[in-house]
Design a protein around this nucleic acid. Structure first.
Lengths: 220, 220
DNA sequence: ACACTAGTCAAGAATCTACTTGATAAGTGA
DNA sequence: TCACTTATCAAGTAGATTCTTGACTAGTGT
């Protein structure tokens, strides 16, 4: 693949085909990488993988498009890189000893605090093909199993109805917590409000913690 | 734009550039339209609007690509057409006088009976920009408001906790009902089962109706 | 000083993809 | 039977999009 000229053999073109002043930026690889990653998060969150455009990412980052390939090899590589970074940031999301209704409430509030992250998670579900292509699979599973364990503990303590499968309940709560992001069309249709506005999201998050309490998920 | 040849002027090429036998199918416009629509539903459901390819749709339908433009004008027109058809099919989904836990259960079972429809709804949420670009907006709102009314009736009859906002609860339930479709990566991560398999979907749907009953949404 | 590497860029190649064009066969009505 | 419309097809075109090439420049070690 490393052949020099593709069509014409090596005519040593010495014409000065360069504009006189390419004002190159101050070099800072770490910063450049970060700019691209930030722009990529925004773009992938907004349009999903298929809808995202590398040209838009480069423009948003204010760098030359080629740097995407220099740093990340491909669009796919860039996508992997942002979920990698995601995993690291996501660890200190909610202290695990927080009461469950409050944990749930905070998850729902992520729609305000971290809309891109929630959208990435939602896109991930629709674009999901199987655990093998999902770099975030194992860590996410672990995080959520801990949540399920807490639900189960409440059940074993007799606060939550015995008929409920803790894992299913956890999934329902997570899905419900993401609704302001994943189902804005439904919400706007039924309530007529801006489903991503602070007012509604806060109200909705409160309601979700009420639901959790009604089910018996509050502290003993 | 309607100039004939772009690069070369009109040389009346009379060369027989046609293969001898294009074995044309039996003509049946209604059927052809239907084939395209079916293929489009599958493709849009699988990859979303941006990820869908008109060439794939035509191939899946077994027709010439051009027929998409002949019948639907554009990719966008085709997309509108499938949501139009959707609206009609969706009417007789669940009889409105069914008890709420059972309604919810059936919604969750749509993941098995009509996976493409559920996925289209999920894509719609992420691709949603506002009510104006959403042809399904008004009818969906109406359908769901009716559901909310039923929830409210239970509340006014004193069976559902007064603190809960019926609209929010309805949204939570709908979001939860879609989880096997919208969050397969989460489910597989936490349960380790195939989130779209019949076994899990049925279990999950049952659990959802249990939840509805626990909240007081069963018949008086 | 100076060679060497890593970071940046402009320009384009290769490929994809929605959409067009023009031809032609199948139906249709007089 | 014959003009005319409708449905279908093969072969494009235009423009977008991912990725490559080759040149150039700012740092870095010696």
């Amino acid at each position: 693949m490393a052949l020099s000229g593709t069509t014409l053999p090596g005519v040593p073109t010495s014409k000065p085909r360069r504009s006189p002043k390419p004002p190159e930026r101050q070099r800072d690889p770490e910063r450049t990488r970060g700019l691209i990653l930030d722009a990529a998060v925004a773009e992938f969150a907004a349009h999903g993988y298929a809808g995202a455009r590398t040209s838009t990412i480069a423009a948003r980052a204010g760098v030359n498009q080629q740097l995407i390939w220099y740093y990340f090899d491909s669009k796919e590589g860039l996508y992997q890189a942002i979920s990698e970074r995601w995993r690291q940031r996501d660890r200190e999301l909610v202290p695990p000893d927080t009461p469950l209704p409050e944990q749930i409430r905070r998850y729902a509030l992520e729609a305000l605090n971290n809309p891109d992250g929630v959208r990435l998670m939602a896109w991930g579900g629709l674009e999901y093909t199987g655990p093998d292509d999902d770099p975030d699979h194992a860590p996410r599973g672990e995080r959520l199993r801990h949540f399920v364990d807490q639900v189960r503990a409440h059940q074993q303590a007799g606060r939550l109805a015995a008929e409920l499968d803790p894992a299913c309940l956890a999934i329902m709560l997570v899905a419900a917590a993401m609704a302001t992001t994943s189902l804005p069309h439904v919400i706007e249709g039924v309530c007529g409000v801006d489903p991503r506005g602070a007012e509604f999201v806060q109200h909705y998050a409160d309601q979700l913690s009420v639901l959790a309490r009604l089910l018996g998920l509050d502290a003993p």
